[in-house]
Design a protein around this nucleic acid. Structure first.
Length: 425
RNA sequence: GGAGAGAUGCUCGAGUGGUUGAAGAGGCACGCCUGGAAAGCGUGUAUGCGCCAAAAGCGUAUCGAGGGUUCGAAUCCCUUUCUCUCCGCCA
């Protein structure tokens, strides 16, 4: 959520930047509505608090009079205060109403895209920020996609998942399960070696938490919801991990805060079916290691690129062909100011699969989180960032596809100490 | 799940209707003292919002959360959340 003061002070810039998200003139009206509502709010608040101040002052006087034994005088003041209170109640109702409208309007405004965000409306307009320079793997005859490899080598079973739960809930087995666990450990070790504190957060979160990182309101359809306890299954570790710092005031020397977490991620992904979602390409539950940073506003973009480097190094160690995209305005998430996606090449499917998304949210989440730092005498909102390092199901898919050989699947060297085997056969 | 107790500032902890944004202690910061340090002494130490060009300042709200009683609530009432203790259940 953008700050009202920011919107007031940067109206023109905001209007033009929201154009990158393909906002039309009619969409932009909400910005002026917000400023208007905020004007109203200020006027009402000033008037309301003026009445409260009088009330408090008179109440003090009444107290003094009672002590002095001047009951009659006190009774007179009482009448006066009661009249003030009636007026105050009217203003209070109006104020609450205005605040509610303002809040509602603010919730509809997405983050302001960074100046480097390319124009565009769909994922086809994303800019290739760093392309894969080497040759793409050519598996030749007989290469099969990962879902067939899964059957051949007993790596995972989607039909079994259907029996146990439903579509999109893979059951990993045998060396497939071991490989999955190896990848998780490897990713976590890479992150902690880079200075991230490992966190094991809850996998269910309450409404306040989901609101602070921007999943609520509006996107409840994307999360699994446990009605009996009013809790949501996390769609990403970003949600609980970023909320570690909800309602916190940091000192400047606390920056940067670096946290990493492995969690399963649950996404309803309603309405996505078809050939491109076969196998592990899109599932309702997948494993992911997330990296999160909280940084000083002046340094958050350096941090964003540092996080890109981290993801890049991990992919290099896994020896997977990858490219980096800079998301266009139309594809940019609601809460993000700038996002880079990583895609790995899936040689058997001959297509790129998104395996990581690294974003700077600037103050958008921090505003809702009330995550601030002390800047001299005042407090300022911090910047939050996060990225996948990495999302597992698709890494798993690309890994087994690209490394398939006639007699088995070769495990990348870096994972040998984690898997305990060098090949799946 | 049943019974009881509790929730106050960075921490501990006092406070049952009237300068209580909140005693006291600890911590922390700064200053004095010291050759240096400790001890000691002094000062300071919440956040949001509004008024103000801005600072200073002033106002207002906040003692788990929400609502109520009252001229006035940390203090009284209701609802709710959470924590602790005992019992039950249990990986």
């Amino acid at each position: 959520m953008l700050q009202t003061t920011f919107i007031r002070e940067n109206r023109e810039l905001l209007l033009s930047r929201l154009g990158k998200r393909n906002w039309q003139a009619t969409d932009l009206l909400v910005i002026d509505q917000i400023i208007e509502l905020d004007d109203q709010r200020k006027a009402l608040q000033t008037a309301h608090e003026g009445l409260l101040a009088s009330r408090n002052q008179l109440s003090d006087e009444i107290g003094q009079l009672f002590k002095a034994g001047q009951r009659e005088k006190a009774e007179g003041l009482r009448q006066e205060v009661n009249e003030l209170k009636e007026k105050a109640t009217v203003l209070e109702t109006e104020l609450k109403d205005t605040l509610e409208k303002l809040q509602y309007a603010l919730y509809t405004v997405p983050n302001m895209p960074h100046e480097s965000v390319p124009a565009g409306s769909t994922d086809e307009d994303n800019e290739v920020f760093k392309d894969w320079s080497g040759p793409l793997p050519d598996l030749g005859e007989g290469a099969v996609p990962h879902w067939e490899l899964a059957k051949k080598y007993n790596l995972f079973d989607l039909e079994l998942g259907v029996k146990i739960t439903g579509a999109g809930f893979p059951v990993y087995r045998g060396k497939g399960a071991k490989l999955q666990r190896a990848l998780i450990s490897f990713f976590l070790d890479e992150a902690t070696a880079a200075g991230y504190e490992e966190i094991i957060p809850p996998h269910l979160v309450n409404e306040a938490t989901a609101t602070a990182t921007g999943q609520l309101p509006d996107k409840e359809g994307q999360m699994y919801y446990v009605a009996a306890d009013d809790l949501y299954l996390i769609p990403t570790a970003e949600v609980p991990v970023t909320n570690v710092y909800r309602d916190v005031i940091l000192n400047e020397e606390d920056f940067p805060i670096k946290m990493t977490a492995y969690t399963p991620c649950f996404r309803r992904e309603a309405g996505s079916y078809g050939a491109h979602v076969r196998g592990l390409n899109r599932v309702h539950q997948f494993d992911k290691v997330e990296i999160v940073q909280i940084q000083h506003p002046d340094r958050s973009y350096d941090t964003l690129y540092e996080m890109l480097d981290h993801v890049e190094r991990v992919l290099q160690k896994l020896e997977l062909p990858y490219r980096i995209l800079r998301l266009c305005g139309g594809d940019l998430g609601f809460t993000s100011a700038l996002t880079y996606d990583f895609e790995v090449y899936s040689a058997a499917q001959q297509r790129w699969l998104e395996v990581s998304s690294v974003s700077n949210f600037e103050t958008f989440q921090a505003n809702r989180l009330k995550l601030r730092y002390r800047d001299g005498k005042q407090t300022q909102l911090a910047h939050t960032l996060n990225g996948s390092a990495l999302a597992l199901a698709r890494i798993f898919a690309a890994l087994v596809e690209n490394n398939q050989q006639p007699d088995g699947i070769a495990i990348p060297k870096v994972l040998h100490s984690y898997t305990g085997f060098q090949q799946i056969d």
